[in-house]
Design a protein around this nucleic acid. Structure first.
Lengths: 340, 340
DNA sequence: CTGTTAGCGCATTCAT
DNA sequence: ATGAATGCGCTAACAG
């Protein structure tokens, strides 16, 4: 950005023989400038190719009209939809959005929080990384008075709102759906149990089994560290067990890999083994059109999160809120296989 | 961001009885400050919870150490990989990255360019929207001396570097592959021909046919506007034509939909109809593991683009460069069906 | 090595 | 309705 080329409000002022403060007012649409001068200023501004220096403006006003979004990975369809929602709401309210990926890495997340703070974003939306277990890295930002709203992966921190889906209910519905379609031996693809999200999902699974008088077998809960290969490992395990007739997966990636592997071994989905998983990734429905899926309101979540954050930015007396969005079970095709 | 809470270099200076300029130097790791005072300053800074105000710093130095990235949609796997590449290279060079989505919308793209300019980003990486046909919206930024590098969708504008893949060659290879595997009637899923990218791909397709003595039939070139439903429409068309035995698709989304539809109608892929398409979207390989795909160096492209841009930022005498990356044909399984 | 001085571009209080 | 004056937080030239 070369320096000589910068047109400032002073240049406009000088060219018009008026003061820069008047120019500033005109550019900010103040009522305290006469219509005629305002028009002259606007004209001159475009004539000279003036472009506001947001940096200076932000420094002066101590706000940036920008919200920072920390997301584990934008490549996950669920998250990119959430971001779309965030952007829509933010834009309507006149806020810019800075998107940052943590890649599920705690250190990266720490650095990002620092950057966002030093860039003085007006608020932060964050879905914490899977590695994140402590929250000290959020404190500097919070102490500076910046609001944080958690989305998808809730955190129970003082004064921070959060927005998530009802994981327990989703799991319960999914498991119950399998049971109602005749499954008796249902495996659960789970995730790290340190994470409340996966804990809740497991609870939902267990409770649904209970409700229908099925035994909970700890071996049926296959815990993944969210790596790519888990699906194959799980699929092999299932084949070894022999009598599995249902899978409830709270892990897209693993489910996809597992289904592919099972199919390649001649297992018929859903006749032999019915599967219910989350479907915010379009892959899941593509790979197996019959798949029953749990639909998370991703776009909605983004909009809600942004709107909550913006409220809090604009009204400092805003009280913490926690919203839980409902999920929906999408049954594309009957999963009935009633082996019995 | 509350104001009272801001700790500035002056606070540190006052607490230590020294001048703020020394503090500034220490914080910027200048050599012109003694080790001992530097340490004292650093200690005091953390003690007081000092956080640099990047805004002020940027205003003063007239640079932001930030590069803006305009991307059509982050949800497309190709682009999110490119972004990962950009982020990696940028971070290593000490630059922050601002990601903005144009959603293939020209007006949105215009607004984003304005925002990036007024935020004084040091450089811009852009993959222009499919709607974009004029480039006036880039001029203000260029006139301010900001460098722009085009990625994936090249634009021939003075002084702007661009980086893309060899679309012509990719198409040629893909089509030839089909021919060599016995296809005689090959359809091409194409995109808007105003766009050089799709033009080049079509050329490659046509030339490969020519080389192998096959007639080019204009009806075999199915032009898509990149909407979701095109794939189904195309598939129906193919079935109607009756004798198609090969598809070269330069349009992921359409290809996936078409394959699914064809399969549902009992067409065997690749025995009846062989398909070659781009695979940066993992869906394509998931839906049909036998698919031969064109692999675009997405991550690489991001790294190259960022590195080009950063060079140009740091060395104003840097001359425009246009790089064309090579593609790779990945044959997962023989597509031979030699109907003949 | 450290202090002094002077702004970066803009917005705002206080005059007029 | 407009101008004058001040400073946001930081860096950099200059001086010592």
């Amino acid at each position: 950005m070369k320096k000589g080329e910068q047109v400032t409000i002073h240049d406009i002022a000088k060219a018009l023989g008026i003061d820069s403060s008047t120019v500033s007012r005109a550019l900010n649409n103040s009522t305290r400038v006469s219509k005629t001068t305002k028009q002259k200023i606007l004209d001159k501004a475009t004539e000279l190719g003036y472009q506001r220096n947001t940096l200076a403006s932000n420094l002066r006003t101590n706000k940036t009209n920008t919200i920072g979004v920390i997301v584990p990975r934008i490549s996950r369809n669920f998250f990119s939809s959430v971001i779309s929602g965030i952007e829509e709401t933010a834009q309507k309210a006149g806020y810019n959005v800075i998107i940052c990926q943590s890649f599920e890495d705690f250190e990266k997340e720490q650095k990002l929080m620092e950057t966002l703070l030093s860039n003085r974003v007006d608020g932060v939306l964050i879905s914490i990384s899977m590695q994140t277990e402590t929250f000290d890295h959020l404190m500097p930002y919070l102490n500076h008075g910046g609001p944080i709203v958690f989305y998808d992966r809730p955190c129970y921190i003082e004064n921070c709102s959060s927005i998530s889906v009802d994981d327990y209910k989703a799991s319960f519905m999914a498991t119950e759906h399998l049971i109602e379609n005749g499954c008796k031996n249902i495996v659960h693809f789970s995730g790290p149990q340190i994470n409340p999200l996966y804990k809740n999902r497991k609870r939902g699974y267990v409770d649904a089994l209970k409700k229908h008088g099925l035994n909970f077998n700890e071996n049926y809960c296959l815990e993944s560290k969210l790596s790519e290969n888990d699906g194959i490992v799980f699929a092999k395990e299932i084949i070894k067990m022999g009598h599995i007739d249902g899978i409830y997966s709270s892990n897209d990636t693993a489910a996809i890999a597992a289904i592919q592997y099972l199919k390649s071994k001649g297992v018929n989905i859903p006749k032999d083994i019915a599967v219910v998983g989350f479907n915010n990734d379009p892959i899941s429905s593509v790979i197996e059109p019959s798949l029953t899926t749990i639909n998370q309101p991703d776009f909605e979540m983004g909009k809600t999160a942004a709107s909550l954050l913006i409220q809090q930015i604009q009204d400092t007396s805003f009280k913490k809120t926690s919203k839980v969005l409902d999920v929906e079970l999408i049954v594309r095709q009957s999963s009935q296989h009633k082996k019995v």
